[in-house]
């Protein structure tokens, strides 16, 4: 179980860190094993920042992140290594996730170096092949190739296979399918569905509301670094309470309507204010459904 409790993140910007940019404000949520939690929201709302904090690629300014009850920010370098045994990530751009001058399967080899230094060659080979097959890749077709010789979908799946070499409990997937075409998309999405069935907790960051709706049972909507609405996917998408959520949902083009038919009028939203102030608190509006007051 992954828990975030009142997590804040401020970046230092400007010379000598003179200014601060608060990117994440007072975010709390939990993800249980076998659950996919989607995080949606406009560009710059802090989604990636949340994912990177969970992966400990950036520090937490305030608040705590716990895995199975243990505070992960307190773990040292050693503890971090053990943490990555359980928590892994896959990023948006498959091409930038691979160092272009090395063969793609080096990402798998690095896992062996750190986590399985004593495993024999043939045993490791078998483990790699099994893991590649489990994400629907043909080992013969992807091993020994350079990143540019593989497709985005293959690369992205190899990254998932890499994560599966470890006994992970949590996967942070930051827009992992936004750069894939529609048919590859659904394959990777279904793969996530299978992983969920096997008990993996997934933090699924996306721009795409229909993807969030398809894959997750719970969703978080973020704006200006804070959570504006959260709850069961059906509740939040079926009956959005926050004006920002309503705008977001209304702005998704429907397959059977044309632009001319009904033009969408956005509701007036509160402008971005002082980000160091605590955001409007979430209140329960229904069973499994919370929304922030729109001020």
């Amino acid at each position: 179980m992954l828990e975030l409790e009142n997590v804040w993140k401020s970046y230092r910007v400007g010379s000598l860190g003179s200014k601060r940019l608060t990117a994440v404000r007072d975010v709390s949520f939990t993800i249980a094993p076998g659950e996919v939690l989607s995080v949606v929201g406009e560009s710059g709302s802090g989604k990636t920042t949340v994912g990177k904090m969970v992966l400990q690629l950036i520090s937490v300014t305030r608040g705590t992140i716990r895995l199975d009850g243990r505070d992960i920010t307190a773990a040292g370098k050693r503890g971090l290594r053990e943490y990555y045994r359980k928590v892994q990530g896959v990023f948006q751009d498959p091409f930038s996730s691979y160092n272009p001058i090395f063969k793609a399967d080096r990402v798998l080899e690095m896992v062996r170096q750190t986590y399985f230094p004593r495993v024999g060659r043939s045993e490791w080979q078998a483990k790699v092949e099994e893991s590649l097959q489990s994400v629907g890749l043909d080992p013969g077709a992807v091993l020994g190739k350079y990143p540019h010789q593989l497709s985005g979908g293959q690369l992205q799946r190899m990254l998932i296979a890499r994560a599966l070499l470890l006994d992970i409990e949590v996967l942070v997937a930051d827009e992992i399918i936004s750069m894939l075409d529609a048919s590859t998309r659904i394959d990777v999405l279904n793969l996530l569905g299978e992983l969920k069935e096997r008990g993996l907790a997934v933090l699924f960051v996306t721009h795409d509301l229909s993807l969030a709706n398809y894959i997750s049972e719970r969703v978080i909507i973020m704006r200006h670094g804070a959570v504006v609405e959260t709850g069961a996917t059906a509740k939040v998408f079926g009956d959005p309470r926050h004006p920002y959520s309503r705008n977001l949902l209304a702005s998704v083009p429907q397959l059977h309507t044309k632009w001319a038919d009904n033009q969408f009028h956005a509701e007036e939203l509160e402008p971005d204010g002082d980000r160091d102030r605590p955001p409007a608190p979430l209140t329960k509006v229904d069973e499994n459904h919370w929304a922030a007051a729109a001020g």
Binding site: R81, Y84, D93, N99, I101
Partner: peptide, 24 residues
């Protein structure tokens, strides 16, 4: 992102500089 991925593979900063950044 491959620098982040190396971190997620438990690599330390000196290793990352020598193996990921320098060759480029």
């Amino acid at each position: 992102d491959y620098v982040d991925l190396a971190k997620l593979s438990g690599k330390r900063a000196p290793q990352i500089i020598v193996r990921e950044v320098m060759p480029n």
